[in-house]
Nucleic acid binder design. Structure first.
Lengths: 138, 138
DNA sequence: CTAAACCCTGAAGTATGCTTCAGGGTCAAG
DNA sequence: CTTGACCCTGAAGCATACTTCAGGGTTTAG
């Protein structure tokens, strides 16, 4: 298979051409060769690279993280353990976010349960709690 | 107690003066009276209002949500149930985010477990999975 | 040969919630 | 009467991940 135009790469990888140009600007995709008229020409394995980026995003890595992963991958001195430690760190980050959201959900549920939905607005337990809320959150 | 300068309100409510001006611009805080020289003069109960905003933020409401809550609160036609339904909707949003993060965490954990951390980079199961990842995510 | 489809660039816009900056007035203490 | 703390404004900047825009060249099908 031969080189791909940016549009072909985009549809093969499931992104837009603007996204590809953006990734290039961010350094996630290396600058491809150009035709005489200045059109980008991607080698076929760019598809894999773009998919890697998408997959890494789907598991919570930021573009910045992904840039680091890609750099590690190139580096002779990288050990598999270096990649694993990134994953572990990301798991911790995600866990932290989950706990925070659970705290939020629980606080909301507590409020919603206090509120019958029938009373006057002036006695709404939810609004009252949002007014006061001294020590509730933990 | 008397009126407060913006700096006094800020420290009483635990925010910065810039935040207060920002909230005013966003319509979360009504425009206060001014002194002859143009300084803002807040009535003491502004402290409650700012705290309400902070508490609502802590339970996951966006500033936009909060603006709506504050408007509902003013409105004669609002029922307590209207507030409750906002809370319920927010719980659903938060639950959705939690599920997404759990999906991410589980995927990362699966990958990290596959990787002993000892192998060569070229065989790193994490990188391999990020390359391929056809159907793993659920 | 023309029109559609595709490509190029740099800059600005989107959403969120502020923060920082530039450039100036005002107020209270000494 | 000066100095420092405090206040004012509008605009720009930050982080994230793109998208949209303005304005213009290229390629391909008919």
């Amino acid at each position: 298979m031969n080189n791909l135009s940016i549009g072909q790469l985009a549809s093969a990888a499931g992104v837009t051409v603007e996204t590809l140009r953006f990734y290039e600007k961010q350094g996630l995709l290396s600058k491809p060769q150009r035709t005489d008229s200045g059109y980008r020409q991607y080698p076929p394995d760019s598809i894999k690279r773009v998919r890697f980026i998408q997959h890494a995003k789907q598991v919570g890595f930021t573009l910045n993280d992904i840039g680091e992963l890609l750099a590690l991958r190139q580096d002779q001195n990288t050990a598999c353990a270096d990649i694993k430690s990134r994953a572990i760190r990301k798991i911790e980050e995600v866990d932290q976010k989950i706990r925070e959201l659970e705290r939020i959900r629980d606080a909301l549920q507590r409020m919603a349960q206090k509120c019958s939905g029938a009373g006057a607005l002036s006695d709404c337990p939810i609004l009252e709690e949002l007014d006061d809320q001294e020590e509730n959150n933990g």
